[in-house]
Design a protein around this nucleic acid. Structure first.
Lengths: 150, 150
DNA sequence: AATGAAAGCACACTGGT
DNA sequence: ACCAGTGTGCTTTCATT
């Protein structure tokens, strides 16, 4: 993990489809060596993958909610997590410690759709309680800061 | 937004570096047409970009916290958001409605590091109150569900 | 780890259906 | 919207340091 690897990760974070040849000009190494380094970053797990980023707003889902969730007693957590796959509005989720069991991020067309999702989660997925709020906007953060300390 | 576009987005979500030629075999169109479609998806904003995904745990930061934050009075929100760029542990953030002003995601090496981040946010970034909990694990969700309804 | 050379591929264009 | 052909540029492998 040297400076060059850090630069490569930063560049690929901005555009994962940059060619090795382009990257090589930025870091002043041969395209060959760049390809080697990127393969190593992937193999070591530092770079988990290259993903297309989808914008829910461009698909008409401009309303994003964050919902803390408490499950009913005796609800199997694995089943709950797996069941979320059938709810297309769920765009992210995590199990947390503390007062609530999970936190979900829900991308909805409008409040009416959010309402149906809330009802669905309560009726079919073992959700006992929700505490939701609206996402006003996301803060852009690059992951390159993490690299500085590694 | 037809079935083929949906497939392409799904495939590029899994691996954003797939070549147009590879994609063309999956969707049974020419590489050319696939490139056209991907360009259109990008131009329309549905695909916002292609990003390398970095794994904090592979860099020794296995402790991820979610922190709800309330700012002190008279703290400028733009300044706060901009100032977060200098805190490398901040890997995501959003402004929310409700009881708290923001929610951050903090990737830390250990509790001691988290403690220093908490102190830093309070001392230098106008944070009045934090409510934090540990991320036990993230739930894997693909964004392709969003596409089904568009 | 890094490099250059060369073969094989992929990409962007153009033009055509 | 889709495809084929072409020139150019990119990726990969191998030999070398």
């Amino acid at each position: 993990m040297d400076d060059i690897d850090r630069s490569l990760v930063r560049l690929l974070e901005q555009d994962a489809r940059r060619t090795y040849h382009e990257l090589s000009k930025d870091v002043r190494l041969s395209a060959n060596t760049v390809a080697d380094r990127v393969r190593r970053l992937r193999a070591s797990g530092v770079v988990r993958g290259f993903r297309a980023e989808v914008d829910p707003a461009a698909l008409g889902r401009a309303l994003t909610m964050v919902s803390d969730i408490r499950l009913r007693e005796h609800v199997d957590r694995t089943a709950f997590e797996h069941g979320l796959r059938s709810v297309p509005q769920v765009v992210a989720g995590a199990r947390l410690t503390g007062e609530y069991d999970y936190q979900l991020r829900l991308a909805c067309v409008d409040p009416a759709e959010f309402e149906t999702v809330v009802d669905l989660l309560k009726r079919d997925h073992g959700v006992r309680e929700l505490r939701s709020r609206l996402v006003l906007h996301d803060i852009e953060v690059d992951a390159s800061g993490l690299l500085d300390l590694a």
